[in-house]
Design a protein around this nucleic acid. Structure first.
Length: 262
DNA sequence: ATGGCTGGTAGAACCAGA
């Protein structure tokens, strides 16, 4: 059994106390982080090694974005895609020789800015272009692959607290959902969140810092784990560590974990 | 009714997140 987690950590250096708490409580074999917000030489390698996570693949940059995969199981980093072609650190790919060559792709899809119109907001266009380039990439995948991360899109009506109110809000617009669906179709990815927690069951992974205190559960499902069909058949359990949102100095995202029979 | 927040880089107020 192998446990794999994905978590947008919103600054790994600031968040190490709760990362350690999560690792001790849930003991994943592999942890994929997004928004580490540091350069590679600033990454807390020693703290992870002390907890048994000696294998690392870190793709960082100064101040923003950045992803990292840390593991107890040996792995090889083999790719870093720049699907915006602008130098931002938003992807790292690894493979696990001891797990039948499993491929794990860790991605931080751009948020896309405020205005859902590429003519008025360049970042929205970059988000769509990023997804389209990922789709071209996914069409060529020929190995069992797990694609995880912060996708910054809540695709289903039940993936947000108020579908109608969010139709014009970046992360839930029909154009983003349609573009994400093309990516999903390109490899027939299985959405593990919905395999294990079928729609329309509540299944959020993110709550804004600005409104969380109101206690109105204004969540969205922005974080995802997608598996190749054959790999998806080996997933045995999936959970969302929602309680971490109430920990001290939390991330605005919570971790997703899937266990595989590998 | 998204923003009343948060983090990084600055070395004060910006940008960015979503």
């Amino acid at each position: 059994m192998v446990k794999i987690t994905t978590w947008n950590i919103n600054s790994v250096r600031l968040r190490m106390p709760i990362v350690e708490r999560y690792l001790e409580e849930h003991a994943p074999d592999v942890l994929c982080l997004q928004e580490i917000k540091c350069q590679e030489h600033q990454f807390p390698y020693e703290a992870f090694a002390a907890l048994g996570y000696k294998h690392t693949a870190v793709h960082g940059q100064k101040g923003y974005h950045g992803v990292a995969t840390v593991s107890r199981v040996p792995m090889n980093e083999f790719s870093r895609h720049d699907w915006q072609d602008n130098g931002e650190a938003r992807h790292v790919g690894v493979e696990f020789p001891s797990l039948d060559g499993l491929v794990l792709e860790n991605v931080y899809i751009p948020a896309g800015g405020d205005v859902p119109d590429r003519e008025k907001n360049m970042r929205f266009g970059q988000k769509l272009d990023f997804l389209e380039r990922m789709t071209r990439w996914a069409e060529k995948i020929d190995r069992p692959t797990l694609l995880v991360g912060d996708f910054n899109i809540a695709p289903l009506e039940c993936d947000v607290y108020d579908h109608k109110a969010l139709l014009k809000v970046v992360s839930h617009t029909p154009l983003e959902v349609e573009t994400l669906n093309l990516l999903q179709g390109a490899h027939e990815w299985v959405d593990l969140g919905r395999k294990h927690i079928p729609a329309p069951e509540r299944n959020y992974s993110w709550w804004s810092y600005r409104t969380y205190w109101q206690g109105k559960d204004r969540g969205r499902r922005l974080d995802h784990m997608w598996a190749s069909p054959d790999l998806a058949a080996q997933s045995r359990a999936h959970s969302i560590a929602e309680h971490t949102r109430d920990w001290e100095k939390p991330s605005d995202h919570v971790p997703l974990m899937t266990e595989f029979d590998l």
